[in-house]
Design a binder for these strands. Sequence first.
DNA 1: TCATACTATAAATTCTTTTTATATTGAGCG
DNA 2: CGCTCAATATAAAAAGAATTTATAGTATGA
Lengths: 331, 331
Amino acid sequence: MDVEVVSILMPARPDDLPFDLRSLEIFLAVCEAGGMAAAARRVGLTQPAVSTAVAELEARLGAGLFDRTVRPLALTPAGALLRQRASALISEARQIAPGLREVARGRLPLVRLGLVDSLSRALAAPLAGHLAARADQVSILSGLTSAHAGALVTRNLDLMIGVDDLGDVAGLERWPIATETYLLALPRGTHVGTVADLAALARELTFVRFSARSSTGVEIERHLRRLGLELPRGLEFDTPYGVAATVAAGGHFAVTTPLCVLEAACDVAGVSFAPTPGPRLTRRLTLVALARVLGRLPQDVAEFARARLAAEALPAIEAASPALAGAIEIG
Amino acid sequence: MDVEVVSILMPARPDDLPFDLRSLEIFLAVCEAGGMAAAARRVGLTQPAVSTAVAELEARLGAGLFDRTVRPLALTPAGALLRQRASALISEARQIAPGLREVARGRLPLVRLGLVDSLSRALAAPLAGHLAARADQVSILSGLTSAHAGALVTRNLDLMIGVDDLGDVAGLERWPIATETYLLALPRGTHVGTVADLAALARELTFVRFSARSSTGVEIERHLRRLGLELPRGLEFDTPYGVAATVAAGGHFAVTTPLCVLEAACDVAGVSFAPTPGPRLTRRLTLVALARVLGRLPQDVAEFARARLAAEALPAIEAASPALAGAIEIG
DNA sequence: TCATACTATAAATTCTTTTTATATTGAGCG
DNA sequence: CGCTCAATATAAAAAGAATTTATAGTATGA
């Protein structure tokens, strides 16, 4: 009868974990000490306590861990495997508390920011300074947004600024940085009004691509396909500099954005910028961070980035080409 | 006075872990349920039990986890960080027991074997069959030993057969597979007796290298330097096939081994093999595995590999060139 | 301001872990 | 083989945690 009652009262608690960190510590002590009596001394318990703890662990796991028919105690295959796994688990567990205490004090031990290539020149140095005041150690990585997105969700990155807001991942917070319209970059004097003009242009000039590894490149490609344009595969680059420098050299055209041009920091006197024919294509730069872990920091960083872009990048873009400046909006 | 006694009795037990898995589970339930009362229902406890467990956790961690001045309960930065870490830790913990039970039954859920490129042709398929009988899932990866060595110590690989026995890593078991002598591979008719001959030859034929990414390439390079030979950088390959095929095509020479030639599976009728001038250089192929985890499997696999090489590879090498066959020894 | 739902605290209870005491087992040795 | 020594297993008692009931305090929203 009692059994019945119990099974009715506790159906919702499978208690799936068959061990505790403490029991794993004891198990590891036995492995290292080479015996239960020695392990008991090491962890400050008596020998029977260790003996029962190990027996309990074996029962719960449903697997023998030691071969007792031989002395000194030998590990079974399952025991050897548990030794590997348990020591990894415990060393991870040990790393949790220290970081937590620092975060609680408002002190961030390490902040890692992933910055999309096209903002690297405009923001890498200022952000480094801004973050250095708030964390003991700062690491800023420039690269492709796709790589950063992966790093963020696997917790190898704390913050990222890029062109993907990871809308499908929960537990993230997002802050807008800027919105840009894609523009045609053409040799000065060229006029493109329609899709047909563009197709004609492609027969005279080589189209320069952003690589399909970058989300910018993928966006542009998709847009061109929507326009019904099949441009020949020619040059392609991973970084904004390659694209801009090639166009600036003449004989090429590309689709790019104001910040990509700024990032390249090359002379664009011979280049004019014009809207793409057909519908406008825009990209949105967003700061993404793990929700709440960093307190107000993501919001602060986003504000700082916007202010910095407004104060430094916009004038520089305006100076390079008014048409460019009209295609970017902060926020 | 009591305090004094306690501090004398328990100095050896720092009890460094400020939590156990159960308290983390409760904490996560509170995060997910959005409150302690709701979490209590979910995990099958009463509300005060959850309340005290959380309070205890906060005390031990030395950091507040929830902001109680607001309802519904909000996570502090430290709480948000712990939520991330704790859920990772617990999901790892959950993965431990199932694999362990299978290992205890003598059933291996998954065996991952890294095979050095030069044994790929000779052993990949037979080993796959041999392992399939002993594991539910088998994964065989061919590549460079250096990559496999890294994967083995980070437990992304269970076994490897390669040219590095990882002598400096503890907790591994090693079984010999074969020993090979490096030979010169030259166009038929060429005679090389001394180091000077070799230097002269290098002025007529191009030397083909194994890439420095492979340990074979590094070994060969070191040996040539010891001989005082400075061969020009020309062609280099990651895989044995590239080297052997280039030499077989004529106009090139290389330093290689019997198994590398067999691996390439190309016609070597026009190639002769000769000892390198100066001291012999050998490489030892070894099977390396995490000690004891896999029971007798590593030993079995090593025996099988040796038998297979003796029965299949040796005759094939002998057929290709008797000089090659003399440069390999099983075991 | 009140009602409600939630959280914190206290004391009692139950359950687990640990200890003391004792029995059992394997290893080494004459 | 049988003895001894050292280690492990088991049983019952004690200590210590975790959990529960009961109750008090507090934020939220009508």
